[in-house]
């Protein structure tokens, strides 16, 4: 199952857990499954049907341009980080 790393400010919703394994063929499916176990996460990360614009998602070390539609593998590692650009 993919492992989702929980941002520090959301860990109050996962009982302090830093990583949560959850099923899901895409990030959206994984987040839906996560929401069932840890209600409230969804509302903190998603606006409308999109990931918050100031959050980027990193899957297996790469920033994903597909965001919530990113396909996940059985051993995928997912991080939510600050969206960045640069100077």
């Amino acid at each position: 199952m993919p492992v989702i790393w929980i941002p520090a400010l959301l860990r109050d919703l996962t009982g302090g857990a830093e990583q949560v394994r959850t099923p899901g063929g895409t990030l959206r499916q994984a987040l839906d499954a996560l929401e069932a176990r840890h209600p409230g996460l969804h509302a903190r990360l998603i606006t409308g049907d999109q990931l918050r614009p100031d959050v980027a998602v990193v899957v297996d070390g790469l920033v994903s341009p597909l965001r919530v539609r990113q396909p996940l593998n059985e051993d995928s590692e997912v991080h939510f980080i600050s969206a960045s650009s640069g100077g």
């Binding site: 941002p7 520090a8 959301l10 830093e18 990360l45």
Partner: peptide, 21 residues
């Protein structure tokens, strides 16, 4: 804004972010 959680008072602090391990 603390990653989706909103304060309820007028403020000049727009957001709070954290890394922790």
């Amino acid at each position: 804004d603390s990653l989706g959680q909103r304060g309820n008072q007028p403020t000049n602090v727009a957001s709070h972010a954290r890394f922790e391990r």
